[in-house]
Amino acid sequence: MLKPRLTMWLVATLGLGSTGVVLAAPPPEAVSCAACHGAMGEGLPAANYPRLAGLPANYIAEQLHYFASGERQNVIMSGMAKPLTPAQVKTIADYYAALPVTMAAPAASVSAGLMARGEQLAVYGDWKAGIPACFRCHAAGGVGVPPYFPPLVGQSANYLSDQIIAWQTGTRTGDPQGLMHTVANRMTSSDTQAVVAWLAAQKPEAAVTMAKSEGGAQ
């Protein structure tokens, strides 16, 4: 795990290099998270540790709450989340939400047919099977819609499919109004494989212009 000073240095340097903006040092609450989620919250795709950088603050806070309550079951994360006070959760959520997205998710290699099916599900959905387009709720490009809808691009295929399976098997709950639950339960395993492969293969540039919520249409 990175020493706090090194982490600070990395954040400052990388932050300056990639966006020209000097970023705040991580708060002490987030230091232990870096071991798995990376110094810049970029995640570790090879180990299924999701990126946290740029996720909506409200969404991060909610998930920490679900890990602690058991609504979202994960041995590692429930241990990490349980000791956090509401104030610490807020500090952590605000910190990660403000970090720039730097991670490129590695693409899984699947057949062209599966990729085409993945694109169809992401952009148009499959209404016969009751699956609305992912991008209708997660925004064009899958960049997310703060405060409730997390981004899908910039996460690894394995992490994404683990989440769909978690909804299907009931180990992930708490999603508002059962919205994601409803979609996940309508997906076959080949649908899941197709859509996560396509999402993970999208250009990381899409993630760089991460969701800037601009309120409503005026």
Binding site: G141, V143, K212, S213, E214, G215, G216, A217
Partner: peptide, 13 residues
């Protein structure tokens, strides 16, 4: 009012 992201309407007003 719906929700707009990066200049595009996601949820219509």
């Amino acid at each position: 009012e719906g929700r707009v992201v990066n200049g595009a309407v996601v949820f219509p007003p």
